Amino acid sequence: MEEVEQLKILVIEDHPIVRDGCQRIFNRRTDIEMIEASSATDGLALNKSFRPDVIVLDIGLPDASGFDILPKLIAENNKAAIIVLSMYGTQSFVTSALEKGAVGFITKNDEPNSLLQAIERVRNGEIYLGQAVAQTLAMNNLAPSSDPLRGLSPREGQIIALLGEGRSLTEISVELNLGYKTVANGVTLIKQKLNIGTTTALVKFAVEHNLKTMSPG
């Protein structure tokens, strides 16, 4: 019987439940060998030693942003096709990932089978976007160079940037000379515009995008 060539997949994801879910999905196929890393450091090391064909990469890693290590992963293993697996499918996340060399992007809200579909497509040299991401891009008529702050006012841009610098709402209200309620309402509106559910997730978004404070308009 002819031996089936194994497809080597590296999953870089800090949440054990998500890694376990990936393993269960890949177990549906007999030709997939998966190893996992829970940090950027371990992921970079395994990329060199394991030499995966496909890398499934989370953005919010404990020791670095996936955006930061994405180019390094490609540079050290240019055969690997990288699929970003993220909680967020906002336009800025997708464009940042693609611009840095990813060839696939799916969210953790997509159907489990989309992960297998993504692997097949990227292995054939195609770009794969999950259903949630494709809908977002269609709705926003996204251009590759879109600004992460597109759609936000200058004041809203200041607020989200200060959140990313670790400022509390009280500190932001003092710095911008605004009432606390005004800042809180601003954060609520920003979350609505970016389709982000919680303030914690918004802070993470700002940190991962290294947003800089804008001057007020």
Rank of each mutant, 00 (worst) to 15 (best):
G164K: 03
R19C: 07
G166K: 08
D68L: 10
T170Y: 14
L73V: 08
L176P: 10
L73I: 13
F105G: 01
G104R: 01
I59N: 09
S168D: 07
V18P: 00
S92I: 01
A97R: 04
V54K: 12
V18T: 08
P148H: 01
N47F: 00
P16Y: 03
I119Q: 03
S153H: 01
G186A: 08
G60A: 14
I74R: 12
M34Q: 14
A143F: 07
F50E: 02
A143W: 04
R123H: 13
E99H: 12
N140Y: 09
G101I: 03
S168F: 07
L149N: 05
E156W: 03
A81S: 15
P71I: 11
D31M: 09
V187C: 00
G197Y: 06
K8C: 02
E13N: 04
N185K: 08
V207L: 03
N195D: 13
G164S: 05
V174K: 15
S96F: 03
L202M: 10
G157S: 10
Q117L: 14
L142V: 15
L162W: 02
V103N: 04
G166P: 04
A37S: 15
L57E: 08
S39M: 04
M214A: 13
G217F: 13
M214L: 15
I119Y: 02
G66K: 05
I82A: 07
L202P: 03
F205S: 00
P154C: 10
L189W: 08
G197N: 12
S153V: 02
M1C: 04
L152N: 02
V203N: 06
D20C: 06
L46I: 07
M139Y: 02
S168C: 05
L98W: 04
I160S: 04
L10M: 07
T30I: 14
V133F: 01
K212A: 11
T198D: 07
A64E: 13
S145I: 08
L57Y: 07
T188R: 10
G43T: 07
T170D: 14
L61W: 04
I159D: 04
L149S: 05
A184K: 15
Q117C: 10
A64K: 14
L61I: 06
D53G: 10
L194K: 10
K100G: 05
K181D: 14
L7E: 04
A184G: 09
G66R: 03
N77P: 09
L142A: 11
Q131A: 11
M214E: 12
L169Q: 15
G130D: 04
E3Q: 11
V183D: 00
L116P: 00
C22V: 15
Q117Y: 12
L46H: 06
L44R: 10
V18N: 00
A134Q: 13
I106H: 07
G157N: 05
I160N: 00
V187K: 00
L194W: 00
I55T: 14
S168N: 05
